[in-house]
Computed example of a mutant assay.
Amino acid sequence: MIRRRALYNRKFSIFIIVIGLSWISIQCQGSGTALKNGSYSQVTESGKKYKLPEIDLSHWKVTIPEGKGKGGAISVEPPEILEYATNETLKPYMYNDSTSGALVFYAYPSEATTANTKYSRSELREQMTPGNDDVNWTFKQGGNLKATIEMEDISRDEEGKYHKVIILQIHGRLSDAQKEKIGQKDNNAPPVLKIYWDKGKIRVKTKELKFPGTPNEGLLYEEAWSDDEGYTFEEEVGFKKFDVEIDVSEGKMLVSLNKNEFKAYDNIHMQKWGVFENYFKAGNYLQTRDKDAFAKVKFYDLKVSH
């Protein structure tokens, strides 16, 4: 009799646990805590599903095509950037696509540009220490970026060809000591890597020394560097999702598309680039001033490690 009662009590306890877990599961789905396909899959009270991008913005600031003319583009840093979805200034240029679970960057030709360019952007800038542009990384320290991206929409030029957009960059930076050494007014150095969405294909451009024997101090001058001829991956991504990975180590840089095509840079130019600090950039840097031009770039995933 005692054994039967113990067995009954055990079965009843298991039943209560199962019911409890089922109730918790239902509550979690209703409050939007379930994770699905890399984005938070949420359900509203009306039963309509929507997704939010799973991108950590705590180490990024964003610059948008809004502000007071050349050099006056607005930037928003952490922690304010974390509230982008309710920030009235950011909302037109950086917003969620709750159907696909992507973070969208919108840009158009604007008078509000950054100091050293004529083009406008809606673009993230890495900050290793949130809110501080002065902490960056070198090739010796290394860096890795992985992103899943999609071109949502983009305008065409007068010939009917799609405009170009820079979607990822590694930008160089002078330390304060280097800036003072060469008498430059700011910390800006050239971008060692630009990755373009170019008429449906992914194109990579990097920097080369004009004279490989340039001494160390001479490396700090922008005039010492020029663009290489560029490299275009064979696969046409068009308006589909694609994965890009950038991996940097001392004297080397590797760029891959969809884990299928690879472009390696392992040469004197990458070795000499070690003199600079660097930071990653990601988003929508529209490469035209054409009237009525625009681009919308989706980021489904964006991860950086050092």
Rank of each mutant, 00 (worst) to 15 (best):
G30E: 10
I246G: 07
K48Q: 14
K194A: 09
V192G: 12
D227P: 01
S25I: 12
F262Q: 13
H163D: 14
W225N: 10
L35H: 09
P130Q: 01
G200F: 00
Q169K: 13
S58T: 02
L219W: 02
D56M: 05
I19R: 15
K161R: 14
E88P: 15
V165G: 10
E180S: 08
K51T: 07
M270S: 06
I202T: 06
Y50D: 12
L7C: 09
R10P: 03
L286N: 01
L168K: 04
T113A: 12
Y119F: 15
S75H: 01
K61E: 11
D176Y: 08
Y300W: 01
D134V: 10
Y265W: 02
K259E: 12
L57G: 03
T63Y: 08
P190V: 08
T86V: 13
F242D: 00
V104G: 13
E123M: 11
V204T: 08
N132K: 09
I64S: 00
V165Q: 11
T138R: 15
L257C: 04
A282I: 08
D97N: 06
K68G: 01
N116R: 08
S155Q: 05
A85H: 07
S41H: 13
S256W: 01
T288K: 07
T288D: 05
W225L: 07
S25Q: 09
K49T: 15
K298V: 07
W225T: 02
A295T: 01
G251N: 06
G238F: 02
A147W: 06
K298T: 04
H59S: 06
I246M: 10
G69R: 11
F294I: 02
Y8V: 07
K140G: 11
K281V: 11
I167Q: 12
T288P: 06
H171R: 14
R121L: 10
P79W: 04
K201N: 08
N278K: 10
I182A: 05
K91A: 13
A102L: 03
F233S: 09
I26C: 14
G131C: 01
A112L: 12
N132C: 02
D292Y: 04
N87T: 00
K179T: 09
T288R: 02
A177W: 04
A295D: 08
S41P: 00
Q184L: 11
G47M: 01
Y95E: 12
A264T: 14
F233D: 05
G71E: 07
